[in-house]
């Protein structure tokens, strides 16, 4: 666990991205080929279609320490598999509501339509998202969880300490 104080000073958001193979992943490749420079905070997982994005993946990413999750798919009507992106859109709309109730800001989870030709959009979306998440500050669920879990560890220590004199 890095020192939380230090962390705040140079907060670099960690963003997990799920990019569809046909549009957004290709666009990210295009951004690379075009040497467009963008923030290094986003790590991409390639999937075949945004329809493959299971809401569990998004929750798992947050639970494992992501500060943001970005999903990139083909524009509506352009899905390589005809309608996978619509399926994702519907899940995303409800998941956003769930996340909101669970205290995760809207800007931390983002769905973007980026076609294969929109290398520059990859850049702008990533930079914009990194900036917005940076402003929100760290989400750091694992750290928060371990802070809360300290309370039960304390008791454990106490029991171990007290047991001997009490029952001896």
């Amino acid at each position: 666990m890095p020192n939380p104080e230090k962390k705040e000073k140079k907060f670099e958001p960690k963003i997990v991205a799920f990019f569809c193979n046909w549009c957004t992943y290709t666009a990210a490749d295009l951004a690379g080929v075009s040497r467009l420079k963008y923030a290094p905070n986003v790590r991409v997982i390639r999937i075949m279609c945004s329809g493959r994005v299971d809401p569990q993946f998004i929750l798992q990413a947050f639970a494992s320490g992501a500060d943001g999750v970005l999903i990139g798919g083909c524009h509506p009507g352009d899905c390589h598999y005809s309608e996978g992106n619509y399926k994702m859109l519907r899940r995303f709309r409800l998941l956003q509501r769930v996340l909101k109730v669970l205290g995760i800001a809207e800007e931390r989870c983002r769905l973007e339509w980026i076609s294969a030709s929109e290398g520059d959009k990859v850049k702008t979306v990533i930079n914009d998202m990194v900036e917005k998440v940076r402003n929100l500050g760290p989400l750091s669920i694992p750290a928060k969880m371990s802070d809360i879990d300290e309370e039960i560890k304390e008791l454990e220590k106490e029991i171990n300490r007290e047991e001997v004199p009490q029952h001896a």
């Binding site: 299971d54 998004i58 929750l59 798992q60 509506p76 709309r93």
Partner: peptide
């Protein structure tokens, strides 16, 4: 096989929502 029951039923039900437009989807939700 499932890590998060809520996420899974959400995924299943939402995938089967009829509308495609954000506004209409939201209305159903």
């Amino acid at each position: 096989r499932v890590r998060d029951q809520g996420a899974k039923i959400l995924s299943s039900i939402c995938s089967n929502i009829d509308p495609k437009e954000e506004i209409a989807i939201d209305a159903v939700l």
